[in-house]
Amino acid sequence: MNLSVMDDAKLVTAYINGNERAFEILVNRHKDKVFTTIYLIVKDRKVAEDLMQDTFIKAIHTLKGGRYNEDGKFKPWLCRIAHNMAIDSFRKKQRNPLVTMEERGNLHNALDFSEESFEKETIELDTKNKLHALIQQLPESQRTVLIMRHFSGLSFKEISEETGVSINTALGRMRYALINLRKKMDESDLAYDKNFYRE
């Protein structure tokens, strides 16, 4: 059976039964969304890499320890672990602030210096940084819902439970987050930047 076409629930079962390849597919399927969720909260690539590992290690222990009971909801569960870890880390950092190289705008920090793709990657990274800077400008309540819904893939019901607000409030915050983000994009002309669109 081709594992790569299996849904998450089946892959989780296969992994719990000892199939390491199933786990590899799960990791590769969700790594970017999980990592983006963390990165947008902690705003530091190195910290995000560490928290990404911690997130999956926690998931591994829960799965292998037979304590996983989120049948069919692997991605929201994983993203919730990532989100909680990132929030904990962000709060700790707020108590003990430290300015990193990345926050000083060191563009090269995250680049893989392949000569052929250097220019393309630089443009893409620059565009991404601009978008993420705009997301950071949103009010915290709106930013949180945007990250949880869009990047973590949590449902509005799950967001309302996580943040302690009603579903309608979560929906309203998401609506304002998207409207405000779009407005900021238009003001900065980023919405017209062709690098923003997928090829």
Binding site: E24, M52, L131, H132, Y197
Partner: peptide
């Protein structure tokens, strides 16, 4: 559409560390 193409990617090393741990 604007948001979707803008996912950050972790390094291969981080992914490998996770798989090695498992």
């Amino acid at each position: 559409e604007l948001l979707e193409g803008k996912l950050e990617k972790p390094t291969e090393k981080t992914i490998q560390n996770i798989l090695d741990y498992s």
